[in-house]
Design a protein around this nucleic acid. Structure first.
Length: 415
DNA sequence: GTAGGGTTAG
Protein backbone atom coordinates (compact mmCIF):
# COMPACT_ATOMS: atom_id res chain seq x y z
CA UNK A 1 0.00 0.00 0.00
CA UNK A 2 2.71 2.56 0.78
CA UNK A 3 3.97 1.62 -2.68
CA UNK A 4 0.82 2.76 -4.45
CA UNK A 5 1.01 5.84 -2.33
CA UNK A 6 4.57 6.53 -3.55
CA UNK A 7 3.54 6.10 -7.17
CA UNK A 8 0.80 8.58 -6.58
CA UNK A 9 3.20 11.15 -5.17
CA UNK A 10 5.70 10.55 -7.96
CA UNK A 11 2.91 11.16 -10.42
CA UNK A 12 2.06 14.42 -8.81
CA UNK A 13 5.72 15.49 -8.64
CA UNK A 14 6.05 14.91 -12.35
CA UNK A 15 3.08 17.18 -12.82
CA UNK A 16 0.88 14.33 -14.02
CA UNK A 17 -2.71 14.82 -13.07
CA UNK A 18 -4.37 11.89 -11.41
CA UNK A 19 -7.82 11.22 -12.82
CA UNK A 20 -10.92 9.53 -11.45
CA UNK A 21 -9.51 6.10 -12.19
CA UNK A 22 -6.29 6.87 -10.32
CA UNK A 23 -8.21 8.07 -7.32
CA UNK A 24 -10.70 5.21 -7.39
CA UNK A 25 -7.90 2.67 -7.51
CA UNK A 26 -6.11 4.32 -4.64
CA UNK A 27 -9.26 4.66 -2.54
CA UNK A 28 -10.12 1.02 -3.12
CA UNK A 29 -6.64 -0.07 -2.13
CA UNK A 30 -6.70 1.93 1.09
CA UNK A 31 -10.15 0.61 1.97
CA UNK A 32 -9.04 -2.97 1.43
CA UNK A 33 -6.01 -2.40 3.64
CA UNK A 34 -8.35 -1.33 6.40
CA UNK A 35 -7.29 2.31 6.10
CA UNK A 36 -10.67 3.77 5.38
CA UNK A 37 -9.79 7.14 6.85
CA UNK A 38 -7.04 7.49 4.25
CA UNK A 39 -9.51 6.48 1.57
CA UNK A 40 -11.93 9.16 2.64
CA UNK A 41 -9.13 11.72 2.64
CA UNK A 42 -8.52 10.93 -1.00
CA UNK A 43 -12.21 11.25 -1.73
CA UNK A 44 -12.15 14.75 -0.27
CA UNK A 45 -8.95 15.44 -2.15
CA UNK A 46 -10.34 14.45 -5.53
CA UNK A 47 -13.51 16.44 -4.99
CA UNK A 48 -11.37 19.45 -4.17
CA UNK A 49 -9.57 19.02 -7.49
CA UNK A 50 -12.94 19.08 -9.18
CA UNK A 51 -12.92 15.37 -9.95
CA UNK A 52 -16.30 13.74 -9.46
CA UNK A 53 -16.33 10.29 -7.89
CA UNK A 54 -17.97 7.72 -10.16
CA UNK A 55 -19.81 4.46 -9.54
CA UNK A 56 -16.51 2.66 -8.96
CA UNK A 57 -15.33 5.14 -6.35
CA UNK A 58 -18.62 5.01 -4.49
CA UNK A 59 -18.92 1.24 -4.68
CA UNK A 60 -15.47 0.77 -3.18
CA UNK A 61 -16.33 3.03 -0.29
CA UNK A 62 -19.79 1.56 0.22
CA UNK A 63 -18.45 -1.97 0.23
CA UNK A 64 -15.67 -1.10 2.66
CA UNK A 65 -18.09 0.60 5.02
CA UNK A 66 -20.49 -2.35 4.88
CA UNK A 67 -17.67 -4.77 5.64
CA UNK A 68 -16.54 -2.61 8.55
CA UNK A 69 -20.07 -2.59 9.93
CA UNK A 70 -20.67 1.11 9.15
CA UNK A 71 -23.95 0.50 7.41
CA UNK A 72 -25.22 4.01 8.14
CA UNK A 73 -22.22 5.54 6.41
CA UNK A 74 -22.65 3.17 3.47
CA UNK A 75 -26.29 4.14 3.04
CA UNK A 76 -25.32 7.79 3.27
CA UNK A 77 -22.88 7.31 0.41
CA UNK A 78 -25.56 5.51 -1.59
CA UNK A 79 -27.83 8.51 -1.15
CA UNK A 80 -25.02 10.77 -2.23
CA UNK A 81 -24.76 8.73 -5.41
CA UNK A 82 -28.44 9.15 -6.14
CA UNK A 83 -28.19 12.87 -5.56
CA UNK A 84 -25.28 13.03 -7.97
CA UNK A 85 -27.45 11.19 -10.50
CA UNK A 86 -25.25 8.13 -10.51
CA UNK A 87 -27.28 4.96 -10.83
CA UNK A 88 -26.54 2.18 -8.40
CA UNK A 89 -25.63 -0.93 -10.36
CA UNK A 90 -25.77 -4.57 -9.39
CA UNK A 91 -22.33 -4.47 -7.83
CA UNK A 92 -23.24 -1.58 -5.58
CA UNK A 93 -26.48 -3.29 -4.62
CA UNK A 94 -24.65 -6.51 -3.84
CA UNK A 95 -22.42 -4.64 -1.42
CA UNK A 96 -25.42 -2.98 0.25
CA UNK A 97 -27.41 -6.21 0.48
CA UNK A 98 -24.40 -7.90 2.02
CA UNK A 99 -24.09 -5.08 4.55
CA UNK A 100 -27.76 -5.35 5.48
CA UNK A 101 -27.46 -9.13 5.86
CA UNK A 102 -24.37 -8.77 8.04
CA UNK A 103 -26.34 -6.36 10.23
CA UNK A 104 -29.10 -8.96 10.52
CA UNK A 105 -31.47 -6.85 8.43
CA UNK A 106 -32.37 -9.62 6.01
CA UNK A 107 -35.94 -8.40 5.46
CA UNK A 108 -34.69 -5.06 4.17
CA UNK A 109 -32.08 -6.83 2.07
CA UNK A 110 -34.81 -8.90 0.48
CA UNK A 111 -36.99 -5.82 -0.05
CA UNK A 112 -34.21 -4.09 -1.92
CA UNK A 113 -33.50 -7.19 -3.95
CA UNK A 114 -37.14 -7.51 -4.97
CA UNK A 115 -37.34 -3.82 -5.76
CA UNK A 116 -34.34 -3.85 -8.08
CA UNK A 117 -35.67 -6.92 -9.89
CA UNK A 118 -38.95 -5.11 -10.38
CA UNK A 119 -37.04 -2.11 -11.67
CA UNK A 120 -35.58 -4.32 -14.36
CA UNK A 121 -32.09 -5.05 -13.06
CA UNK A 122 -30.83 -8.46 -14.16
CA UNK A 123 -29.70 -10.52 -11.18
CA UNK A 124 -26.61 -12.71 -11.28
CA UNK A 125 -25.20 -15.58 -9.25
CA UNK A 126 -23.18 -13.26 -7.01
CA UNK A 127 -26.14 -11.34 -5.69
CA UNK A 128 -28.02 -14.60 -5.15
CA UNK A 129 -25.08 -15.96 -3.17
CA UNK A 130 -25.04 -12.88 -0.98
CA UNK A 131 -28.73 -13.21 -0.27
CA UNK A 132 -28.51 -16.96 0.34
CA UNK A 133 -25.71 -16.31 2.81
CA UNK A 134 -27.88 -13.76 4.58
CA UNK A 135 -30.75 -16.22 4.88
CA UNK A 136 -28.50 -19.01 6.07
CA UNK A 137 -27.02 -16.83 8.75
CA UNK A 138 -30.45 -16.35 10.32
CA UNK A 139 -31.41 -20.00 9.85
CA UNK A 140 -33.94 -19.32 7.11
CA UNK A 141 -32.81 -22.36 5.19
CA UNK A 142 -36.02 -22.71 3.21
CA UNK A 143 -35.61 -19.19 1.87
CA UNK A 144 -32.06 -19.90 0.77
CA UNK A 145 -33.13 -23.11 -0.93
CA UNK A 146 -35.99 -21.29 -2.64
CA UNK A 147 -33.42 -19.01 -4.21
CA UNK A 148 -31.95 -22.07 -5.88
CA UNK A 149 -35.29 -22.73 -7.54
CA UNK A 150 -35.69 -19.09 -8.46
CA UNK A 151 -32.30 -19.07 -10.14
CA UNK A 152 -33.18 -22.11 -12.19
CA UNK A 153 -36.31 -20.39 -13.43
CA UNK A 154 -34.17 -17.47 -14.53
CA UNK A 155 -31.57 -19.78 -16.09
CA UNK A 156 -28.85 -18.56 -13.77
CA UNK A 157 -26.47 -21.40 -12.94
CA UNK A 158 -25.60 -21.72 -9.28
CA UNK A 159 -21.83 -22.15 -9.04
CA UNK A 160 -19.39 -23.55 -6.49
CA UNK A 161 -19.58 -20.53 -4.22
CA UNK A 162 -23.36 -20.55 -4.19
CA UNK A 163 -23.54 -24.23 -3.38
CA UNK A 164 -20.75 -23.87 -0.86
CA UNK A 165 -22.73 -21.18 0.91
CA UNK A 166 -25.83 -23.35 1.12
CA UNK A 167 -23.82 -26.34 2.36
CA UNK A 168 -22.07 -24.22 4.95
CA UNK A 169 -25.44 -22.94 6.19
CA UNK A 170 -26.98 -26.39 6.42
CA UNK A 171 -23.95 -27.71 8.32
CA UNK A 172 -23.99 -24.72 10.61
CA UNK A 173 -27.54 -25.62 11.67
CA UNK A 174 -26.82 -29.33 11.99
CA UNK A 175 -28.67 -30.25 8.81
CA UNK A 176 -25.78 -32.18 7.36
CA UNK A 177 -27.99 -34.91 5.91
CA UNK A 178 -29.67 -32.30 3.76
CA UNK A 179 -26.40 -31.37 2.12
CA UNK A 180 -26.69 -34.62 0.15
CA UNK A 181 -29.34 -33.07 -2.03
CA UNK A 182 -27.13 -30.05 -2.71
CA UNK A 183 -24.15 -32.26 -3.45
CA UNK A 184 -26.07 -34.30 -5.99
CA UNK A 185 -27.20 -31.07 -7.65
CA UNK A 186 -23.59 -30.01 -7.83
CA UNK A 187 -22.53 -33.30 -9.37
CA UNK A 188 -25.26 -32.95 -11.98
CA UNK A 189 -23.83 -29.58 -12.94
CA UNK A 190 -20.34 -31.01 -13.06
CA UNK A 191 -19.14 -29.16 -9.98
CA UNK A 192 -16.90 -30.98 -7.51
CA UNK A 193 -16.53 -30.20 -3.83
CA UNK A 194 -13.35 -28.52 -2.70
CA UNK A 195 -11.35 -29.47 0.44
CA UNK A 196 -13.01 -26.73 2.50
CA UNK A 197 -16.51 -27.96 1.73
CA UNK A 198 -15.48 -31.52 2.58
CA UNK A 199 -13.98 -30.41 5.86
CA UNK A 200 -17.10 -28.41 6.73
CA UNK A 201 -19.29 -31.46 6.14
CA UNK A 202 -16.94 -33.70 8.10
CA UNK A 203 -17.06 -31.34 11.06
CA UNK A 204 -20.84 -31.34 10.97
CA UNK A 205 -20.96 -35.15 10.88
CA UNK A 206 -18.83 -35.28 14.03
CA UNK A 207 -20.87 -32.65 15.78
CA UNK A 208 -24.08 -34.54 15.07
CA UNK A 209 -22.65 -37.82 16.31
CA UNK A 210 -22.22 -39.41 12.88
CA UNK A 211 -18.65 -40.57 13.41
CA UNK A 212 -18.67 -43.29 10.78
CA UNK A 213 -19.90 -40.92 8.10
CA UNK A 214 -17.24 -38.39 9.11
CA UNK A 215 -14.45 -40.95 8.86
CA UNK A 216 -15.77 -42.20 5.54
CA UNK A 217 -15.36 -38.70 4.16
CA UNK A 218 -11.61 -38.88 4.68
CA UNK A 219 -11.50 -42.05 2.60
CA UNK A 220 -13.69 -40.44 -0.01
CA UNK A 221 -11.44 -37.40 -0.24
CA UNK A 222 -8.42 -39.60 -0.60
CA UNK A 223 -10.04 -41.81 -3.23
CA UNK A 224 -11.23 -38.85 -5.26
CA UNK A 225 -7.88 -37.10 -5.03
CA UNK A 226 -9.29 -34.15 -3.08
CA UNK A 227 -6.51 -32.48 -1.13
CA UNK A 228 -6.54 -33.49 2.52
CA UNK A 229 -5.21 -30.60 4.62
CA UNK A 230 -3.98 -30.02 8.15
CA UNK A 231 -7.37 -28.46 8.87
CA UNK A 232 -9.06 -31.70 7.81
CA UNK A 233 -7.00 -33.47 10.47
CA UNK A 234 -7.83 -30.79 13.02
CA UNK A 235 -11.51 -31.48 12.49
CA UNK A 236 -10.94 -35.22 12.50
CA UNK A 237 -8.85 -35.33 15.67
CA UNK A 238 -11.05 -32.87 17.50
CA UNK A 239 -14.16 -34.82 16.50
CA UNK A 240 -12.71 -38.11 17.66
CA UNK A 241 -11.51 -36.66 20.99
CA UNK A 242 -14.87 -35.07 21.70
CA UNK A 243 -16.54 -38.40 20.98
CA UNK A 244 -14.22 -40.02 23.50
CA UNK A 245 -12.31 -41.94 20.81
CA UNK A 246 -8.89 -40.79 21.96
CA UNK A 247 -6.95 -43.80 20.75
CA UNK A 248 -8.45 -43.36 17.31
CA UNK A 249 -7.49 -39.70 17.43
CA UNK A 250 -3.88 -40.55 18.25
CA UNK A 251 -3.91 -43.11 15.49
CA UNK A 252 -4.99 -40.54 12.91
CA UNK A 253 -2.51 -38.03 14.28
CA UNK A 254 0.26 -40.56 13.68
CA UNK A 255 -0.99 -41.17 10.17
CA UNK A 256 -0.62 -37.55 9.07
CA UNK A 257 2.75 -38.15 7.37
CA UNK A 258 1.05 -40.73 5.12
CA UNK A 259 -0.87 -37.77 3.74
CA UNK A 260 2.33 -35.73 3.44
CA UNK A 261 1.22 -33.53 6.29
CA UNK A 262 3.22 -32.32 9.28
CA UNK A 263 1.23 -31.49 12.42
CA UNK A 264 1.23 -27.82 13.34
CA UNK A 265 0.67 -26.12 16.71
CA UNK A 266 -3.11 -26.19 16.24
CA UNK A 267 -3.25 -29.96 15.68
CA UNK A 268 -1.02 -30.52 18.69
CA UNK A 269 -3.20 -28.27 20.78
CA UNK A 270 -6.36 -30.06 19.75
CA UNK A 271 -4.82 -33.40 20.65
CA UNK A 272 -3.35 -32.13 23.93
CA UNK A 273 -6.71 -30.67 24.90
CA UNK A 274 -8.48 -33.89 23.94
CA UNK A 275 -6.02 -35.99 25.93
CA UNK A 276 -6.42 -33.77 28.99
CA UNK A 277 -10.19 -33.85 28.82
CA UNK A 278 -10.17 -37.63 28.51
CA UNK A 279 -7.85 -38.03 31.51
CA UNK A 280 -4.66 -38.80 29.62
CA UNK A 281 -2.69 -36.04 31.28
CA UNK A 282 0.67 -37.80 31.01
CA UNK A 283 0.18 -38.39 27.30
CA UNK A 284 -0.77 -34.75 26.94
CA UNK A 285 2.48 -33.68 28.58
CA UNK A 286 4.48 -35.92 26.25
CA UNK A 287 2.71 -34.41 23.28
CA UNK A 288 3.56 -30.94 24.50
CA UNK A 289 7.22 -31.93 24.83
CA UNK A 290 7.15 -33.56 21.43
CA UNK A 291 5.81 -30.32 19.98
CA UNK A 292 8.68 -28.40 21.58
CA UNK A 293 11.23 -30.91 20.33
CA UNK A 294 10.02 -30.23 16.80
CA UNK A 295 10.75 -26.56 17.34
CA UNK A 296 7.09 -25.69 17.13
CA UNK A 297 6.34 -22.66 19.27
CA UNK A 298 3.30 -23.14 21.49
CA UNK A 299 0.93 -20.17 21.60
CA UNK A 300 -1.43 -19.12 24.36
CA UNK A 301 -4.08 -21.66 23.40
CA UNK A 302 -1.55 -24.50 23.52
CA UNK A 303 -0.29 -23.44 26.94
CA UNK A 304 -3.83 -22.98 28.20
CA UNK A 305 -4.87 -26.49 27.14
CA UNK A 306 -2.09 -28.03 29.21
CA UNK A 307 -2.52 -25.64 32.13
CA UNK A 308 -6.21 -26.45 32.22
CA UNK A 309 -5.52 -30.17 32.10
CA UNK A 310 -2.97 -29.99 34.88
CA UNK A 311 -5.30 -28.01 37.10
CA UNK A 312 -8.13 -30.46 36.53
CA UNK A 313 -5.77 -33.17 37.73
CA UNK A 314 -4.63 -31.28 40.79
CA UNK A 315 -1.16 -30.48 39.44
CA UNK A 316 -1.23 -26.82 40.33
CA UNK A 317 2.53 -26.53 40.64
CA UNK A 318 2.97 -27.74 37.10
CA UNK A 319 0.30 -25.31 35.97
CA UNK A 320 2.14 -22.47 37.66
CA UNK A 321 5.36 -23.48 35.93
CA UNK A 322 3.64 -23.38 32.57
CA UNK A 323 2.19 -19.98 33.30
CA UNK A 324 5.67 -18.74 34.22
CA UNK A 325 6.94 -20.17 30.96
CA UNK A 326 4.32 -18.13 29.14
CA UNK A 327 5.61 -14.97 30.80
CA UNK A 328 9.21 -15.86 29.98
CA UNK A 329 8.36 -16.55 26.38
CA UNK A 330 6.32 -13.34 26.16
CA UNK A 331 3.14 -15.27 25.40
CA UNK A 332 0.23 -13.09 26.37
CA UNK A 333 -2.49 -14.46 28.62
CA UNK A 334 -6.04 -13.95 27.38
CA UNK A 335 -9.50 -14.49 28.83
CA UNK A 336 -9.54 -18.29 28.36
CA UNK A 337 -6.06 -18.52 29.91
CA UNK A 338 -7.05 -16.54 32.98
CA UNK A 339 -10.37 -18.34 33.24
CA UNK A 340 -8.54 -21.68 33.36
CA UNK A 341 -6.09 -20.36 35.94
CA UNK A 342 -8.67 -18.82 38.26
CA UNK A 343 -11.15 -21.69 38.12
CA UNK A 344 -8.38 -24.28 38.19
CA UNK A 345 -6.61 -22.87 41.23
CA UNK A 346 -10.00 -22.62 42.95
CA UNK A 347 -10.65 -26.25 42.20
CA UNK A 348 -7.24 -27.14 43.66
CA UNK A 349 -8.14 -25.24 46.82
CA UNK A 350 -5.47 -22.61 46.09
CA UNK A 351 -7.77 -19.72 46.75
CA UNK A 352 -5.14 -17.10 47.36
CA UNK A 353 -3.40 -17.88 44.07
CA UNK A 354 -6.74 -17.88 42.28
CA UNK A 355 -7.46 -14.48 43.75
CA UNK A 356 -4.12 -13.15 42.56
CA UNK A 357 -4.88 -14.23 39.02
CA UNK A 358 -8.34 -12.74 39.28
CA UNK A 359 -6.95 -9.38 40.38
CA UNK A 360 -4.28 -9.58 37.70
CA UNK A 361 -6.76 -10.15 34.90
CA UNK A 362 -9.05 -7.38 36.07
CA UNK A 363 -6.13 -4.98 36.30
CA UNK A 364 -5.38 -5.82 32.66
CA UNK A 365 -9.02 -5.17 31.77
CA UNK A 366 -9.55 -8.80 30.89
CA UNK A 367 -12.86 -9.22 32.62
CA UNK A 368 -14.05 -12.51 34.12
CA UNK A 369 -17.53 -13.68 33.17
CA UNK A 370 -20.23 -14.15 35.77
CA UNK A 371 -19.76 -17.91 35.96
CA UNK A 372 -16.11 -17.45 36.91
CA UNK A 373 -16.98 -14.80 39.50
CA UNK A 374 -19.61 -16.98 41.10
CA UNK A 375 -17.22 -19.91 41.04
CA UNK A 376 -14.56 -18.14 43.06
CA UNK A 377 -17.15 -16.67 45.46
CA UNK A 378 -18.55 -20.14 46.08
CA UNK A 379 -15.08 -21.33 46.98
CA UNK A 380 -14.66 -18.53 49.51
CA UNK A 381 -17.93 -19.53 51.16
CA UNK A 382 -17.16 -23.22 50.95
CA UNK A 383 -13.87 -22.67 52.79
CA UNK A 384 -15.62 -20.56 55.39
CA UNK A 385 -14.19 -17.19 54.34
CA UNK A 386 -17.56 -15.53 54.50
CA UNK A 387 -16.39 -11.99 55.22
CA UNK A 388 -13.93 -12.00 52.32
CA UNK A 389 -16.59 -13.50 50.09
CA UNK A 390 -19.02 -10.71 50.85
CA UNK A 391 -16.36 -8.07 50.29
CA UNK A 392 -15.36 -9.58 46.98
CA UNK A 393 -18.96 -10.00 45.96
CA UNK A 394 -19.70 -6.34 46.66
CA UNK A 395 -16.66 -5.33 44.68
CA UNK A 396 -17.72 -7.51 41.77
CA UNK A 397 -21.22 -6.10 41.87
CA UNK A 398 -19.83 -2.58 41.88
CA UNK A 399 -17.78 -3.36 38.78
CA UNK A 400 -20.82 -4.87 37.12
CA UNK A 401 -19.19 -8.28 36.91
CA UNK A 402 -22.10 -10.00 38.60
CA UNK A 403 -25.75 -9.10 38.31
CA UNK A 404 -27.43 -11.72 40.48
CA UNK A 405 -28.43 -10.50 43.94
CA UNK A 406 -26.58 -12.06 46.85
CA UNK A 407 -29.37 -14.23 48.08
CA UNK A 408 -29.92 -15.65 44.60
CA UNK A 409 -26.34 -16.70 44.28
CA UNK A 410 -25.89 -18.14 47.76
CA UNK A 411 -29.28 -19.06 49.19
CA UNK A 412 -27.81 -21.07 52.01
CA UNK A 413 -25.60 -18.35 53.43
CA UNK A 414 -26.94 -15.87 55.92
CA UNK A 415 -25.62 -12.40 55.30
C1' DG B 1 -8.95 1.58 -16.76
C1' DT B 2 -11.00 1.15 -11.36
C1' DA B 3 -16.18 -1.89 -7.79
C1' DG B 4 -19.44 -7.21 -5.87
C1' DG B 5 -20.55 -13.48 -3.60
C1' DG B 6 -19.15 -18.62 0.41
C1' DT B 7 -16.36 -21.70 3.66
C1' DT B 8 -13.05 -25.44 7.36
C1' DA B 9 -8.98 -26.11 12.93
C1' DG B 10 -7.56 -25.55 19.15
Amino acid sequence: MPRAFEFFHQMRKKGLKPNVVTYSTLIDAFCKEGMMQQGIKFLVDMKRLGLLPNEYTYTSLIDANCKAGNLTEALKLANEMLQANIDLNIITYTAIIDGLCEAGRIAEADDIFRAILKAGLTPNVQIYTTLAHGYMKVKKMECALNLLQEMKEKSISPDLLFHGTVIWGLCNWDKVEETKFVISEMKESGLSLNPVIYTTIMDSYFKTGKTTEALNLLEEMWDLGIEVTVVTFCVLIDGLCKTGLVLEAINYFNRMPEFNLQPNVTVYTILIDGLCKNNFIEAAKSMFDEMLSKNLVPDKTAYTALIDGNLKHGNFKEALNLRNRMIEMAVELDLPAYTSLVSGFCRCGQLQQAREFLDEMISKHILPDEILCIGILRKYYELGHVVEAIELQNEMAKRGLITSPVHHVFPSVQT
